[in-house]
Amino acid sequence: MNRLTLFLNKYARLFQVEWSVMLAYRSESLIWMVGAFVQPLISLAVWLTISGTGSINGYGAREYILYFLGVLLVERLTRSWDVWELDQDIREGTFSAKLLRPFHPIHWSVTQNLVYKSFFALLMVPAWLVLGWLFPVLSPAANLSSVLLFTLAIIGSSAVRFLTGYMFGLLAFWTNRAISIFLIYEMAHLLLSGRIAPLSMYPDGWLEWSLWLPFYATVGFPVELLSGRLSDNPQWIVLGFCSQIVWIAMLGLALRLQWRAGLKKYGAVGG
């Protein structure tokens, strides 16, 4: 067998195992999913109150509903929980067991992400299709190419958020406050990624800022691809993907460096 097959074998096996672990916790997973619906729905309620029967910057009730449903979906499909996992693994020493095996621990986290995200996708995508069929208001003006672009953007966004999440998780090598530090970052992400409002609701210039940071490209961008807002704005599509690629490259590099330093630290204080 060549190296690639061996590598894919590992992923396939890990995926199966992590899938059964997830099934053992399926009620928890469902509760997590439902709990995460609340925040976008609150934002939706607030915007519906503000806009009333009129519209703001091209957003009326219908657009807001569609936008925040998109946020719901994108949030679930791209968010990473690795900080909690890593923090626990490192604190309790179970990380050692993974470190001693000849397979980089990051692959375990990647498969976990794949498992949870496929689970959510399996539930949410059909649910939306049915809802969109019942209430035409909810069906985005999507064609094949925009769905394809949306899928790509989801993958890119997941990668960016996974890398950031993993880096914050590795902070557990140095501090026992990795989770709180991540929560601060998440707060900034909440504000600037488009999760509480479409970025066109913001004062002028915010969108540009958010584009430079790993924010807009991870939530606002995929959502707007889905709702068809960007279809007559091809340069924004290009910019969004560029932002994703640049961030993936930079974070990947930073993660390598951090990993090396982290191992040294772990080796100094004990695992």
Partner: peptide, 11 residues
């Protein structure tokens, strides 16, 4: 602030 950027009052 963001919500109030587009409105004078919320609810």
């Amino acid at each position: 602030n963001i919500f109030f950027f587009r409105a004078d009052s919320v609810g």
